[in-house]
């Protein structure tokens, strides 16, 4: 499957946006794992803004960065959202309530508990009425989202925004499903070359042969957060050189992504 990449967004520990992170991702500056916080989007009306948790804030922030990078109007884009587990803090709070003597559940917690909550908030924030898909595939969630977005571009011949995000669970869920940090990534993909195109992207599913060679510190992040399985692709894009990278998928399979830069990505 083939697409043209037009915009990138990324937020994670030590990675505060695509432009600010390119030299680190390219390996020309050292990586430092620094906690990152994400503010609620000022695209949302006050009632929705104050209900957002980290996962919604993260998804909206990287989606917005990718859209602004591409120059596309956000509401004009179909969307694919993907996350392994959604909002870990919210799930913890709900489990805590259900395990207590008073089991009445916060309606706001319930409102935020559905897996496609960020897609809903994105629609409120941008006014987008285009098709939207939300999925999960455990550690393969990023690769599954990338395949879905590439398929959308190939079949519908329309641009799409892909947003992948994950947040850690508090204990005790953290012990059984360790996600080491928040991480979000977004791409705007299009079916044809435009003056916004920054690289071509070809994606295929293959047996895993080798792991990507990532800059020091980023390999642990890649392994520790499902959405950060995108780091081999992000690092290759930051280097702005033609490359083929392997992204973890399901059951010993990988997504092979071949990129060909068309111009500098900043």
């Amino acid at each position: 499957m083939h697409a043209w990449l037009e915009g990138i967004g990324v937020i994670g520990p030590g990675l505060k946006g695509w432009r600010a992170s390119q030299s680190v991702l390219a390996g020309t500056q050292p990586y430092f794992h620094e906690p990152v916080s994400v503010a609620a989007s000022d695209w949302l009306p006050p009632a929705e803004r104050r209900r957002t948790g980290t996962s919604v804030r993260l998804a909206l922030a990287v989606g917005r960065e990718a859209c602004e990078h591409s120059g596309r109007v956000p509401r004009s884009l179909a969307t694919v959202f993907t996350s392994s587990g959604g909002d870990g803090d919210n799930q913890h709070a709900i489990c805590e309530t259900l395990a207590s003597d008073v089991r009445d559940l916060s309606p706001t917690r319930f409102h935020n508990s559905v897996h496609n909550a960020p897609a809903g908030y994105w629609g409120v924030a941008t006014g987008a009425m285009e098709s939207s898909t939300t999925l999960c595939a455990y550690d393969a969630s990023f690769a599954a989202g990338l395949i879905e977005a590439m398929a959308w571009v190939a079949v519908e011949r329309q641009p799409v925004l892909l947003v992948a995000y994950d947040t850690p669970y508090p204990e005790p869920l953290r012990s059984v499903r360790p996600i080491v940090a928040i991480f979000g990534v977004a791409f705007v993909l299009a079916p044809a070359r435009t003056d916004r195109s920054i690289a071509t992207l070809d994606v295929d599913v293959r047996p895993t042969v080798s792991k990507a060679d990532l800059p020091e510190g980023l390999a642990a992040l890649c392994e520790g957060v499902p959405a950060a399985r995108s780091l081999p692709l992000l690092c290759a894009l930051a280097r702005a050189l033609a490359a083929e990278v392997s992204i973890d998928y399901l059951d010993g399979m990988s997504v092979s992504a071949v990129i060909e830069p068309l111009r500098p990505t900043d």
């Binding site: 009632a47 209900r51 009445d104 916060s106 309606p107 706001t108 409102h111």
Partner: peptide, 11 residues
């Protein structure tokens, strides 16, 4: 406030 807020207040 909206209806979700009123439910939250009741809780």
């Amino acid at each position: 406030l909206d209806s979700i807020d009123i439910l939250e207040i009741a809780l």
